[in-house]
């Protein structure tokens, strides 16, 4: 019972990592908006780089999700 409760708590706590990922994705797209506003002719190239940055940042969020799943189901 106590272990079950601790598992649920731990899985919930693992989602705190998503805060950082939210900040990161916001920074990526904020920088994209700024860059496009300064030089609209680079829009396509900047968008490609931003998508790459978005995916790299999102992966960190998914590591947090992986930890939550590991705590819930694998231990």
């Amino acid at each position: 019972m106590l272990v079950q409760a601790a598992k649920l708590l731990g899985a919930g706590l693992a989602t705190i990592g998503l805060a950082g990922a939210g900040v990161g994705i916001g920074t990526v797209f904020g920088a994209l908006v700024l860059g496009t506003a300064r030089n609209p002719s680079l829009k396509d190239e900047l968008f490609r780089i931003a998508i790459l940055g978005f995916a790299l940042t999102e992966a960190i969020a998914l590591f947090a999700l992986m930890m939550a799943f590991l705590i819930l189901f694998a231990l």
């Binding site: 995916a55 999102e58 992966a59 998914l62 590591f63 999700l65 992986m66």
Partner: peptide, 13 residues
């Protein structure tokens, strides 16, 4: 590892 986990975790999530 991160290359694999990125694709897998995105799809699973």
């Amino acid at each position: 590892l991160s290359l694999a986990v990125r694709l897998f975790a995105n799809m699973m999530a």
